[in-house]
Design a binder for these strands. Structure first.
Length: 783
DNA sequence: GAGTTTGAAACT
DNA sequence: CAGTTTCAAACTC
């Protein structure tokens, strides 16, 4: 459990979703160079080596949890705790704008406790962390747990900040102070803190008397180290808390938003120990603070990192803000995942800290397109951008978003969720949301990516091909290019709609169908597909899903996916990829984009009812024009391979994708879709759901199914395959187009020019791969 | 950019 | 499930 919980926390931190995975590689790079003082510390080394992996783990973990919990969504929460907590925080934040209100915090704290396992787990983790920290202080052992702890600690470090609020109870503060001294040597920043703390220590000591104090202390100590480490490694952490970044970034915002202020104050405190102390004195909520703190700490850490230890915030802050603005676009796609995670957090237990987080989120989240808001990840993305974490990066919020967010902070509907990000709603759609969030985290989630399509797409887009990423980024780009231009792949994440009557609440709307919120580039009228209307969006989505669980599933399924899902049937549909439902073209001859199959770069299948099919990618009869579809039917082995791959991929998605992300809706959607796809075959649908069934509800919860897949898949997936895939995937990433093929070994078919690779399925695969890679090296195993 | 075509989505 | 309507993208000019 401890490891899992830790992982979950990591995930939550990475939170922001699948992004983490992406980040990991980058982080490594980043970390390696900067290591300075901390390098000596075993822990630090550990982190460096692990950090990348850690992020991945988060994803996997979530997945694993999901798989484990599959039957029961709640269980999922447990693993994802962090994410859930954060999400909950977000929501609560919205609800409770005023962090100042101790009541809220306290209440939140209670809620968190109630939240249950998820919340509980964190505590456990903390304890473990504390233990670890202690060890760390001792310096010695940098055990895998350690790493996990470290990851967790980040949050804790935040707790450190939180401590201030809690100070009454003090555990954190005291611990921190204590820890600090130990760690102090390692980190520059720490020293300052230490100095400050002394005053607090007296208070903290009182707290210490209580059992928890030790743990907290340890945590804090760890946090301190973390800070140092982060400062070195920083980026990693940053990714996790986009929101945080804001808080950290903008001191000014603090003044503006009470809640934010709190967080910011914390962050500031981090920078300025004295301030922190003062804050701590005021704050009452302990647990909440702890969690929130964790968030804050992350932010702080991030900030510190972003800015070299120096503490000068001003300049850095500006830069960060700008970066945030840029992020806005990205967020949208990724958001889903992120959002989910955040929401979870909120739900779980947002405490006072949560409120702060929420605020921070709001700040970070862009209103606007709010998509962004979700992702704290977005913040992370900034730094991540450089690295693989493209989708995550894409998620990054834009500065604009931040602004918007503030405005939106309290959507009319009431739920701040919007903040979470466009993608978020997918998660929300069901109880599964939790799962989704997890997925998101993983995907991201994910997303991402991403949503499914939403997240997943986003993720996929990012992962799938550089194109996707670009597209996501492009959102900012004014014009909708035709998403499809990408190729069949339509990067859903980047979709832009032009709806006039549907209010963007029907599948007519590409954005909505993709599980993504409409963004500026959209030319839609009377659009309700915005974070502000998240409730409406979610409700509508549920309705649609109730009618057709697969409504948001990716339309085009890869062979691998099909293989997996369909299993036996896959043999029936040799084509590398197929349209889930098949087309119904009568006049276009399946040679124009009117045809979804053609648009998706896939051949028509038995499922199609098209007339006069001339689909260049493959005719309905099964004879794909392109030889590409080599029939795998006969080969059970091939199918198995494909399945394994698909599973791997899918698992990754769940991260993303997404939803992230999603990527389906976010990624989740895609994932779902993939999972769902089996059903997709028109008539055959029901049977295949087996996978879905694993996940739980097939429908809305695409996330779950995906998770299920992921979970199931991961185990199934052969390491060999992954390894092989990994490189390929990477390469593919480099070249999106190529990627397509790689996606499914079986699918030899070269994706038509379009980009089969772009096709959601492929994307998903890519995304998955990317994520999977980092995840692969799960830290836990080391233990 | 306006208008037409097309097929999916939604509705009955 | 089939037929019809609505809708927005794709396409053409």
């Amino acid at each position: 459990m401890g490891e899992e919980s830790v992982n979950a926390e990591r995930e939550s931190e990475s939170g922001r979703g699948g992004c983490v995975v992406m980040d990991t590689p980058e982080r490594k790079h980043q970390l390696a160079p900067p290591v300075s003082k901390f390098e000596d510390s075993p822990v630090f080394n550990y982190l460096n080596s692990l950090s990348p992996i850690t992020s991945v783990k988060s994803v996997h973990i979530t997945q694993t949890f999901n798989s484990l919990t599959f039957s029961s969504p709640p269980s999922v929460f447990t693993s994802p705790h962090v994410s859930t907590l954060r999400d909950s925080r977000v929501l609560r934040r919205h609800q409770f704008s005023d962090p100042s209100n101790s009541e809220f915090s306290s209440s939140h704290g209670d809620k968190e406790d109630k939240s249950g396992e998820a919340t509980d787990i964190p505590h456990n983790v903390e304890q473990q962390q504390n233990d670890n920290h202690v060890d760390v202080a001792g310096k010695s052992s940098a055990e895998p747990l350690y790493e996990t702890n470290v990851a967790i600690e980040l949050p804790q470090t935040s707790s450190y900040e939180c401590v201030s609020p809690d100070c009454a109870k003090a555990s954190h503060c005291g611990l921190e102070t204590n820890c600090i001294p130990e760690l102090a040597g390692s980190s520059k920043e720490l020293i300052p803190y230490v100095q400050i703390r002394p005053g607090k220590e007296s208070i903290e000591k009182e707290v210490h008397l209580e059992g928890p104090s030790h743990i907290q202390e340890n945590k804090e100590s760890a946090g301190c180290d973390w800070e140092n480490l982060f400062s070195d490694e920083g980026d990693l952490l940053l990714f996790d808390t986009p929101n945080d970044s804001k808080t950290l970034i903008d001191p000014s915002q603090r003044s503006i938003e009470p809640g934010m202020g709190f967080c910011s104050s914390l962050t500031n405190d981090l920078q300025n120990p004295l301030a922190v102390n003062a804050v701590s004195a005021d704050n009452n909520s302990q647990l909440e603070c702890g969690r929130d703190m964790s968030v804050v700490t992350d932010q702080d850490i991030l900030v510190s990192q972003s800015k070299p230890v120096a503490g000068d915030n001003g300049d850095n802050v500006d830069d960060e803000i700008a970066s945030n603005l840029q992020r806005g676009m990205r967020r949208r796609c990724l958001v889903f995942e992120m959002v989910g995670s955040r929401r979870k957090r909120v739900d779980d237990g947002s405490n006072c800290s949560s409120s702060m987080l929420l605020q921070s989120n709001e700040n970070t989240a862009s209103g606007d397109k709010c998509v962004v808001p979700l992702k704290p990840a977005s913040n992370a993305p900034k730094r991540r951008l450089p690295g693989i974490g493209l989708h995550l990066n894409t998620l990054a919020a834009t500065s604009v978003d931040h602004k918007i967010i503030n405005h939106d902070a309290f959507p009319p509907g009431g739920q701040p969720i919007s903040v979470c990000g466009s993608a978020a709603y997918f998660n929300l759609s069901n109880s599964q949301q939790i799962v989704n969030s997890d997925l998101v985290v993983t995907s991201s989630d994910i997303d991402t990516c991403p949503l499914e399509d939403g997240i997943l797409n986003a993720e996929n887009a990012a992962l799938g091909s550089g194109c996707m990423v670009n597209e996501v980024l492009d959102h900012s780009s004014p014009k909708k290019k035709k998403r499809r231009s990408d190729s069949g792949g339509e990067s859903e994440a980047c979709k832009r709609c032009n709806c006039k009557k549907s209010k963007c609440l029907k599948l007519y709307c590409e954005c909505f169908a993709a599980g993504v919120y409409c963004v500026e580039p959209c030319s839609c009228q009377e659009c309700f597909n915005k974070p502000i209307y998240e409730d409406t969006v979610l409700a509508t989505r549920k309705q649609i899903e109730s009618r057709n669980p697969l409504a948001f599933a990716p339309k085009v399924i890869r062979n691998s996916d099909v293989m997996i899902e369909v299993g036996e049937e896959s043999s029936k549909t040799p084509a590398s990829a197929r349209h889930k439902r098949g087309c119904n073209c009568k006049k276009s001859g399946c040679l124009k984009k009117y045809c979804e199959c053609y648009q998706g770069g896939v051949g028509c299948s038995i499922n199609c009812r098209c007339e006069g099919c001339k689909n260049a990618f493959g005719i309905k009869d099964g004879s794909t024009s392109t030889e590409t579809e080599v029939e795998i039917e006969g080969d059970a082995e091939q199918e198995k391979r494909a399945v394994n791959r698909s599973l791997q991929i899918t698992t990754v998605h769940n991260d993303a994708e997404q939803k992230t992300s999603f990527a389906l809706p976010a990624t989740p959607l895609q994932i779902c879709g993939s999972s769902i796809q089996p059903f997709s075959s028109k008539s055959k649908k029901p049977p295949r759901s087996s996978l879905l069934s694993i996940g739980g509800s097939s429908s809305g919860l695409y996330g779950t199914p995906r998770f299920g897949k992921l979970n199931s898949i991961q185990p199934l997936a052969n390491i060999h395959d992954r390894k092989e895939e990994m490189p390929e995937i990477l390469q593919r990433n480099a070249s999106p187009n190529s990627g397509v093929k790689s996606g499914s070994p079986n699918s030899k078919r070269v994706s038509p020019p379009q980009s089969i690779g772009l096709s959601p399925g492929q994307r998903s695969s890519r995304k998955l791969i990317l994520q999977s890679i980092p995840s692969f090296p799960s830290l836990t195993p080391k233990h």
